[in-house]
Design a protein around this nucleic acid. Structure first.
Lengths: 338, 338
DNA sequence: CTGTTAGCGCTTTCAC
DNA sequence: GTGAAAGCGCTAACAG
């Protein structure tokens, strides 16, 4: 049997589509449609198993009640958690999320954004992959509602929800120092993004606040593409030429996992031989032995806030409302790695 | 500036929408539209930054080129990998995936399926949460194209792509036994699905094949909703009251991660004090120390196959084609946890 | 080669 | 209280 449409049920009941539409949209009373008519409509709808066609509805109303989410990688638990929190909240407000994973590919990201726009999503939430702003500038120019998460462009006036990378790293390093560690090395990636730069700032400021002199020798930049090997070499060199290094702070979770593997190979014991802390928490760090202390970002809050900001903008009367710039504070989770 | 529509560019060029539509859809040559006209159209489209409205297009054509994917949990890497493989393949064929996570809630699942249908997705791929078949029966009755993954209903004639759970678990347990372990406990969830039942079968058949007597005492059912706590208590009870248990086999990856955390708290060393193996692999299990041996499902294949089957059905001339039932064989990956 | 026209299924204004 | 009719933006059969 073919799917029933508004028209079908109108025909069946010898009424107009208008009436049926009103009733089905709960505007029956408001439009003063008689109880009996309303009942007939509801009954027929149920009997025909009527399901409104969202496409038609959206085309007509100009609203899809869908928001698009573009993240670099669904497989990454960090983004998965954000997505989940967002979805839950969205659902409560009658919105659906359309997730897309750009797989860290800027081209794919651009495609996805366009696909979502073509599908007329009411707004976008994006964790941009690259420093390439063109796509974002486009959205801005078109006045398309969107909010950036995780990463943002300091010079652009856009909505964003990020975590305070500097503060997070400061917390970690400060804690180590208070624990008595003084020679603390900072391990990061080469050619780093804004995010990493801020973490670096946090590292330096923690040293400064505690009266410890910063030394460039304690900073190691690792090549992302030969991660495992490079980190092993650099750590080995640094640790054997500089016996006094007491702690390692990693700028990202993947650096930490690679670094831990390297330490294991080198034969160093945590925390006996060397202390460790990292930015970005992972289930792994909790399960490991010893547990690795980590700066955890408030993923749930990020997801919820981002959605909130977006819906604010979507539902705003103001055509071009003030952009909301939200920076959340991360937590340092203390485990047994120092 | 308002978004440009087909009509806008037709008006601008003093042509009909038809012509413009044909050109923009690449049917220009086929419709023998003059080169000059085509160029004019393309140029205007570019200049106006024309982006077709998919809603309108789909409403008119009856095709959305979107397929809906309903999984129990995006946060689960198992589904994330399936989704990713599927997405990649879909993209190549010009389809988009709309992911939805039911959060293991049957009500939510039903809602999502209906939402996706309302959005006129061309087909559905579903990892059903529960044993309640009503939603699935509905789809079947309506002849809506869909394929089940991961879990299925043996008695229903539907497309599905699953892995052979029994064989997978048999491989794991058999390996442990061959390694010399005899007292092997099976840890699963309460109220389990068909999937778990099959894994349980695999466990029992491996014991049987090796002449080991099955004991109910070695089976622990954990409450999904208080996982962490419950698994800790039950493992603690079991292991302290039954010192001879030599190995733990987990029925799912989340049971295993929770179980490992519990073992760590209890203070047991793997594999010295106790051996471990699990169904479902995760990156985590490889990174950990020791690496955890695991039955790996061919997630990528599942994703690709499921999509293939679905597209077959969608594009089939036959209104009610033969259902494809695909069972893939999992691998047991040996690491250092025994 | 290009234009006219009738939908797709729904919303909503205006009229009776 | 209810209906007619104009659109939303696009496709595609048909006409010329």
């Amino acid at each position: 049997m073919k799917k029933a449409s508004l028209k079908d049920i109108a025909n069946l009941l010898n009424m107009s589509k208008t009436t049926v539409s009103f009733v089905l949209n709960g505007k029956g009373d408001q439009m003063k449609i008689s109880k009996s008519t309303q009942e007939k409509v509801m009954e027929a709808a149920k009997r025909l198993n009527y399901q409104p066609n969202q496409l038609a509805r959206s085309l007509s109303s100009g609203k899809t009640n869908t928001i698009g989410l573009v993240i670099p990688n669904i497989g990454d638990i960090f983004y998965a958690e954000i997505a989940r929190a967002m979805e839950k909240k969205a659902h409560k407000q009658g919105y659906n999320i359309m997730y897309c994973s750009s797989e860290e590919d800027p081209k794919r990201e651009a495609q996805l954004i366009n696909m979502l726009k073509a599908r007329q999503v009411d707004g976008l939430i994006i964790a941009p992959t690259k420093l390439d702003k063109t796509e974002i500038l486009h959205l801005k120019k078109e006045n398309y509602p969107f909010v950036l998460i995780d990463r943002h462009f300091p010079k652009l006036d856009t909505n964003f929800v990020i975590t305070d990378n500097k503060v997070g790293m400061h917390k970690a390093v400060d804690f180590l120092i208070k624990k008595g560690y003084k020679k603390i090395a900072f391990i990061c990636v080469q050619n780093y993004l804004e995010v990493i730069r801020q973490r670096f700032e946090g590292y330096k400021s923690a040293l400064r606040d505690n009266g410890i002199r910063f030394s460039n020798k304690l900073v190691k930049e690792i090549d992302y593409f030969t991660l495992e090997q490079d980190i092993h070499e650099k750590l080995y060199d640094m640790l054997s030429s500089n016996r006094e290094i007491e702690a390692l702070v990693f700028a990202t979770n993947f650096l930490c996992t690679a670094g831990l593997a390297a330490l294991k190979k080198i034969g160093l014991n945590i925390p006996k031989d060397i202390a460790v802390a990292t930015f970005d928490d992972r289930a792994l760090f909790q399960l490991m032995n010893p547990g690795i202390s980590a700066v955890a970002q408030p993923t749930q809050l990020i997801g919820e806030k981002a959605l909130e900001v977006l819906l604010d903008e979507i539902n705003s009367e103001d055509k071009n409302p003030q952009k909301q710039k939200i920076t959340l504070e991360p937590n340092f989770i203390i485990r047994d790695s120092q």
